[in-house]
C-alpha cells in the first residue's frame, strides 16, 4: 500500500506541487494576516467571503469580461501592427536604425503618465483602453519579432535561393517557422502586458472593468474587494498566457517533442 502511494507520488509529484504551493501560500497569508487589522491586510477567509458575495451579484463577471475584452482587443491590435513591422525592420536594418530611437522613446514614456491624455483624446469608452493596452503590448512583440526574423539561418536562406524558392515560399517555409519560437515569447509577454495596459487605461477614467473595481474599492476602503479584483486580474493574465502557450503548441508541432 505504502509502496503504491510512494510510486503514485513519484509519478505525479509535479502535478501535486502546484496546489501544494497554493495551499502553503494561503496558509502563510492567513498567518501573517493575523498580525494586522483587516483594513490593512484582510485574511484569505475574508477575501473569499467577499469574492463569493461579489460573484453572486454578477458584477465580477461584468468587470472581468470588460477588462478581458479590452486586453484581447489591445493585444490583437498591437500584434497586428508589430508583427508585419518587425518583419519589415528585420529586413531593412537601415530603417530600423532610423526608427529605433523613436520607438524606444515612445516605449520609455511611462504608460501611467500617457493614459490620462489618451483617455481625454479618445474618449472615456472602450477605445481608449484598447489603445493603451495595444501600446503596451506592441513593444515586446515588435522587438521579439525583429529578433526572431533575424535568427533565420543565412545558409538555409542561401540554399533556398539557390533552389529557386519564391519570396512567399521562403517566408512561409523558412523565415516564419524559424522565427516562431521567439515571436511566441514576445506574444506571451505582450498578452500579460496588455492586461496591465487595460487596467492602467481604466484607472485613468472608466466605469467598468477590474481596474475600475480596484479604484472604486479603494475609494470605499473595501480592502477585501481590492484583493478580489487582484485575484481576478491574476486569473485573467494566467488564462491568456495559457491560451498563447496552447497556440504555440498547436503552431509548432515540430517542437512538441522537446
Amino acid at each position: 500500500m505504502a509502496n503504491r502511494l510512494f510510486a503514485f507520488l513519484r509519478r505525479y509529484y509535479e502535478y501535486l506541487l502546484m496546489p501544494l504551493g497554493l495551499l502553503i501560500f494561503v496558509g502563510l497569508w492567513q498567518l501573517v494576516a493575523g498580525f494586522y487589522p483587516a483594513f490593512i491586510l484582510p485574511g484569505p477567509s475574508r477575501v473569499g467571503t467577499r469574492l463569493m458575495e461579489y460573484m453572486a451579484n454578477g458584477m465580477l463577471r461584468q468587470h472581468f469580461i470588460t477588462t478581458g475584452y479590452e486586453s484581447i482587443a489591445g493585444f490583437v491590435m498591437g500584434g497586428l501592427l508589430a508583427l508585419p513591422l518587425s518583419y519589415f525592420l528585420s529586413r531593412h536594418p537601415f530603417v530600423e536604425r532610423c526608427l529605433t530611437p523613436y520607438i524606444v522613446g515612445v516605449q520609455a514614456i511611462p504608460i501611467v503618465a500617457l493614459a490620462p491624455l489618451l483617455v481625454i483624446w479618445f474618449g472615456f469608452g472602450l477605445s481608449s483602453k484598447i489603445l493603451v493596452s495595444g501600446l503596451v503590448a506592441f513593444f515586446p512583440i515588435l522587438t521579439n519579432g525583429i529578433m526572431g526574423f533575424r535568427s533565420t539561418d543565412p545558409r538555409l536562406l542561401e540554399l533556398m535561393a539557390i533552389m529557386g524558392a519564391k519570396r512567399k515560399q521562403i517566408f512561409f517555409k523558412l523565415e516564419l517557422p524559424s522565427a516562431l519560437p521567439v515571436i511566441c515569447g514576445g506574444l506571451k509577454l505582450g498578452i500579460t502586458l496588455a492586461v496591465i495596459g487595460a487596467v492602467v487605461g481604466e484607472f485613468a477614467g472608466s466605469g467598468r472593468g477590474l481596474g475600475y473595481l480596484v479604484n472604486a474599492a479603494r475609494g470605499s476602503f473595501d480592502t477585501p474587494l481590492i484583493f478580489v479584483a487582484l485575484i481576478a486580474l491574476a486569473l485573467l493574465g494566467i488564462g491568456f498566457y495559457i491560451l498563447i502557450a496552447w497556440f504555440e503548441y498547436w503552431l509548432m508541432p515540430w517542437r512538441r517533442r522537446e
Binding site: Y36, P37, F39, I40, G219, S220, F221, D222, T223
Partner: peptide
C-alpha cells in the same frame, strides 16, 4: 485616501480627509 487606514493603524499621525470618507471608512 489610502492614508486613512494608515492613520487608523497609527502609522501616520494625522490626515486631511473628507467627512464622507470618514463615514465610509468607519462603515468598514
Amino acid at each position: 485616501i489610502d492614508a486613512l487606514p494608515l492613520v487608523a493603524d497609527g502609522k501616520v499621525d494625522f490626515a486631511i480627509a473628507g467627512g464622507d470618507q470618514v463615514i465610509t471608512a468607519r462603515s468598514h
